[in-house]
């Protein structure tokens, strides 16, 4: 979950420092590049503020003072890496208890959304409908956790295949539950029971969450051998939205080739696997494409029930996902154009 950071305020301050909108674009591009390398947002903001002071003092443009966003971001990253200020243990998986807690809370939210849709739509629904929030909540959180784990261990194509099969299975189970209970309905009580269900599930999730302690994914050995290094390095690089499988293979192959010629181990030649993976960071274009594709699928799935008839609630949800996809594209476009302007 992204934390609220003052980065947007700092970017805004760049725009006002000399009254130059392009300065804001420069700051945005620097912050974007660093955040894409999983650098802590507070640290990114510190770096931006440091440069902002000089921009204010000198009245010079940030490009003139610090170079292009890419160069300045790389310099900050390298300096923080040398000073040991980066926290490379950014890849975490939750414990099984935290998964249960998150699933219960997600189920609670889904029940609440269904309650709102029911108030608006006012359809007569079968009893089996009450199982849907739980089914969807656990499926969503389970799916995200599985993706997080499998994408660090398996090829993307295999992960997508398994996820697709699981989605079809869950869809079939949902239809089955609704079909079996199609003869029974709770009538006018339906929306209010959904609200009660939402409150119970959300509270249960909160209680379980209090007992949870997250632990980091696979501790990194102090002195890994080449195979351990590659496993960890490629695992981090394969994170969702980072680098494609083909690119990861290429980077690893090149690292092995270099280490073979230098006669040193990968750890000696490239340093800790997490820190080296962070130097590559995410593939911004790939991450944006994946996110937009995800929103497109959500819009399509959401529009399927409209075959039965028009619904304002469904249209609103579809529009929300479309707006999210547009925001993703705008962020990417802003990043791309600011990088071009400053280069």
């Amino acid at each position: 979950m992204a934390e609220a950071t003052p980065i947007p305020a700092t970017v805004n301050a760049y725009e006002h420092a000399r009254g130059e909108g392009l300065d804001g674009q420069w700051a945005f591009a620097v912050s974007w590049r660093l955040l894409m390398k999983n650098v802590d947002a507070t640290l990114v903001d510190e770096g931006l503020r440091e440069a902002l002071e000089l921009v204010r003092e000198t009245g010079e443009s940030p490009e003139e003072l610090f170079g292009s966003p890419g160069v300045h971001a790389a310099e900050l990253f390298e300096r923080w890496r040398r000073d040991g200020r980066l926290n490379p243990a950014a890849v975490k998986v939750p414990t099984s208890r935290s998964l249960v807690a998150s699933s219960l809370k997600a189920s609670g939210w889904i029940a609440f959304i269904m309650f709102v849709l029911e108030l608006v739509g006012g359809r007569d629904l079968p009893v089996g409908f009450f199982a849907l929030p739980l089914l969807l909540g656990f499926a969503t959180i389970g799916g995200v956790a599985f993706w997080e784990w499998a994408s660090h261990a398996w090829a993307t194509a295999l992960v997508v295949t398994v996820m697709t099969a699981a989605t079809v299975g869950i869809g079939a189970a949902t239809v089955g539950v609704l079909e079996v209970t199609s003869g029974t309905s709770l009538g006018a009580l339906t929306p209010w029971l959904l609200l009660l269900e939402a409150a119970v599930l959300w509270s249960a999730g909160t209680v379980v969450l209090i007992l949870v302690t997250a632990k980091t994914f696979a501790e990194v050995q102090d002195n890994p051998d080449d195979e351990q290094w590659v496993r960890r390095f490629s695992g981090v690089l394969r994170g969702p939205g980072w680098q494609s499988d083909a690119r990861v293979r290429e980077i690893v192959r090149e690292a092995r080739s270099h280490a073979a010629e230098s006669g040193r181990t990968l750890a000696a030649e490239f340093g800790p696997p997490d820190a080296h993976a962070m130097a590559y960071g995410v593939d911004v274009r790939r991450r944006t494409t994946l996110k937009i594709a995800l929103y497109a699928v959500l819009v399509a799935l959401n529009l399927v029930p409209m075959v039965d008839g028009f619904s304002w609630a469904t249209t609103a949800v579809a529009l929300f996902f479309t707006w999210q996809a547009w925001q993703e594209y705008r962020t990417y476009d802003r990043f791309r154009s600011s990088a071009q302007v400053a280069s």
């Binding site: 790389a74 980077i251 090149e254 270099h258 230098s262 030649e269 490239f270 340093g271 820190a275 130097a279």
Partner: peptide, 8 residues
Amino acid sequence: KGGSLYPV
């Protein structure tokens, strides 16, 4: 070292 060269 490779860790400095390849990012460049």
